[in-house]
Simulated assay, not measured.
Amino acid sequence: MEALYPAIKPYVTHSFAVEAPHVLHVEECGSPEGIPVLFVHGGPGAGCEPYHRQFFDPEKYRIILFDQRGAGLSTPHASLENNTTQALLADMEALREYLGIEQWVLFGGSWGSTLSLVYAETHPERVLGLILRGIFLCRPEEIQWFYQHGAHRFFPDYWEEYLRPIPPEEREDMLQAYYQRLVGDDEIARLTAAKAWSLWEGRAATLRPSKGVLNHFGDTHTALSLARIEAHYFVHNAFLTDNQILNEASRLAQIPGHIVQGRYDMICPLESAWQLHRAWPRAELSIIPDAGHSATEPGTVDALIRAVRRMASELDRS
């Protein structure tokens, strides 16, 4: 089994001002002369973590990580102002130009797979390749599966805690009920909702319980941005048209890709990865038999490291 590369630190960080009021935190690691790769984090609103640098051989890759609007170390924290999918796509293009990169590889999981796919379909000429995990096509049925009907059947004990902040008369539309609290003026209600929302996701993320994953999702700073920004995006159908990613999958035809998917992913079920693979046959699909959604599970780490290594070899030969 392949493991993460040793921990590294950035050789440079940037405070990258985009559309007001947002300033993005950006860092570069690895080799300045290496293959440019952009790490696209999940959520939306989750932010980057130090271990995200460790998926890439630092001698082969110029590793770029950025916290999306309102997430991680970007400011203002948890802000919903001017925060849309189209805005994030514009930020990625502006960042590419700022860093002087002609083309890059995109590496994204969960919402990071969504944003990477939409970027690649919008700017296919800028994408050397895609490495994606936990495919989320951000369709209404996928959002309903996790926040209203579906995943609760596998986690009834965790679901009760997710229900708790919402009175029974509002539970027919949990997304809207949470959204109203997360954007409301009651700070206690806002933080209570954020913690419950985030922990529901963290508890469902792994096949086996993971203290590290739960600590991340339970952190107040992360929970607030994750819950507020996710709810904001999901009540607006992620600012995408119906089935947009699959409808435009033909634009991916010339882009090499690797899809890594846990068979027991309860947040983003395998069906979406399978449908994407069918629509984008050039992408290799690896189904991990003993994994859920998280990028930290051993089989998923192994597959991602191998995919990153293969991508470097493929690009070296091209």
Score class of each variant (00 low, 15 high):
I255D: 07
G108E: 09
F56W: 03
L182T: 05
A71E: 10
A249D: 13
K60G: 05
V127L: 00
A151I: 01
Q54D: 13
W200T: 04
K211V: 04
W280D: 00
A249P: 06
A94L: 04
I135H: 00
I101G: 12
S116I: 07
V37G: 03
Y51I: 00
A189T: 01
E28T: 12
V235Y: 06
A303G: 13
V213F: 03
E97Y: 02
H236L: 07
G257K: 04
E172Q: 12
I267S: 04
E142F: 06
A279E: 12
H14D: 13
A307G: 12
I288M: 10
D265W: 04
G109K: 04
R203H: 15
S313H: 09
L38F: 15
L4D: 11
A253K: 13
F39G: 13
R164T: 15
A78D: 11
E19F: 02
G70F: 06
L252S: 02
L80Y: 09
V235W: 05
P209Y: 08
L38K: 08
E161S: 10
G262R: 07
H41R: 06
L115S: 10
P209D: 05
R139Q: 14
K60S: 15
E169I: 05
P289C: 07
L207Y: 11
C48G: 05
A194P: 01
F239L: 05
I288K: 00
P36D: 03
E19W: 02
L99F: 11
F66T: 12
T75F: 01
E314W: 01
N237R: 14
G212H: 06
D173E: 06
K9F: 10
I245H: 04
A273K: 05
R171V: 07
N82I: 06
S31A: 15
T192L: 04
D157R: 12
D185W: 02
L315P: 00
A279R: 12
Y179P: 00
F146V: 10
C138K: 03
I288A: 07
W159E: 08
F39T: 10
E170F: 11
I143P: 01
Y98S: 10
S286T: 15
P36E: 05
T122W: 09
W280E: 09
W104E: 07
D173Q: 01
H232M: 08
D316M: 01
V118M: 07
A205G: 07
S15G: 02
W159H: 11
Q261V: 02
I63T: 08
I8K: 02
G100M: 01
V37N: 04
E161K: 14
T114K: 02
F154A: 11
P32G: 08
I166P: 04
F154L: 14
F154Y: 13
E170V: 04
S318D: 10
E160K: 15
Y264V: 03
A223H: 05
Y11A: 11
S225V: 06
H221E: 11
A279G: 07
F217K: 00
I143M: 15
W111S: 01
L199G: 06
N83R: 09
W197E: 00
L65C: 02
P21H: 05
A17H: 11
L38V: 10
R203M: 12
G150E: 12
T296C: 05
E161Y: 05
A151N: 10
T114Y: 03
